[in-house]
Design a protein around this nucleic acid. Structure first.
Lengths: 147, 147
DNA sequence: TTCAATTAAATCGCTTGCGATATAAATTAT
DNA sequence: ATAATTTATATCGCAAGCGATTTAATTGAA
């Protein structure tokens, strides 16, 4: 038996599981808003700065356009964003928030942060722990992303 | 602008991204073995203890059977595991490693741990940091799983 | 200029992950 | 014993992720 190959010793399995479970925790709240978690990520990017290229959004989320394009197409069908071909550079696609997409920010603000706090109320981690966690995750993300 | 809704303030986005990137880092090594990351997880479960029920595997990985069953079916088609109906309880399905599935353990042992160490060589985290990270992730996982 | 690279998105095919439902075998209640 | 319930898996449908390829527009080089 190789202890290196034990599930309990795998940081990757923990990341995989924690990511799934926390996304699941978001899901009921996001369902109320009629969106999925990746759609919520795209909206957060656009709430920070409206009217961005597909590539900008993909880059911000560290995703490829072959993930983002279909995601945006579904979001357009849902009336959350509008996609328009670039005037100067015809290869580009500009993504803009619709009124509906804009208005979701307030609704999200009124439910998501408090909702997540509630989900994690039983978690023994303190503010400082979450800060550490964020730093450690950023280390891993930066290492693997700049390769 | 609601700072609570900024991507940079989201622990969930970090988890989501770190999980994706570290899985991507595994992928070339796993390709060499002819398996995917979730299949690797199943194999680790069976390497720890061969011959388990679908439910045991799902429970160990914190997944549902509607994820694990098709995964196992694909693995059976690849000749990694065998699925047999339970003799005593006809509802159960027993999952066993094939010779091929067994032998992958040595191959994995010879390539994966060293390969991942190499991928993360540039990461500033030390042994103690990874320990902390594991504890923090376990806190989150336990909190969200026991709800 | 003209044709070969580059770039931005989109498309395709496949595996996951998961909510919802179905199937079928065992257990429990009446 | 028979019907209702529970349990173990499986099936279905859809949204992601992503490797690989394609399309179309722009840039660059000869």
């Amino acid at each position: 038996m190789h202890t290196e190959l034990q599930l309990d010793n795998q940081i990757c399995f923990r990341l995989y599981t924690a990511a799934r479970l926390i996304t699941q925790a978001y899901t009921p709240m996001l369902n109320t808003l009629g969106i999925t978690y990746p759609q919520y990520l795209v909206l957060m990017v656009l709430w920070e700065k409206d009217c961005q290229l597909v590539n900008d959004i993909a880059h911000r989320l560290l995703l490829e356009t072959n993930t983002v394009t279909p995601l945006l197409q579904r979001m357009e069908k849902e009336g959350l964003v509008k996609r328009t071909k670039g005037k100067e550079d015809g290869r580009q696609t500009l993504v803009t928030l619709t009124k509906k997409g804009c208005e979701l920010e307030e609704q999200a603000y009124n439910s998501i942060p408090a909702g997540m706090a509630k989900e994690l109320r039983a978690c023994p981690l303190k503010f400082k722990d979450y800060e550490h966690l964020a730093e450690e995750l950023d280390s891993i993300i930066n290492t693997l992303n700049n390769k």
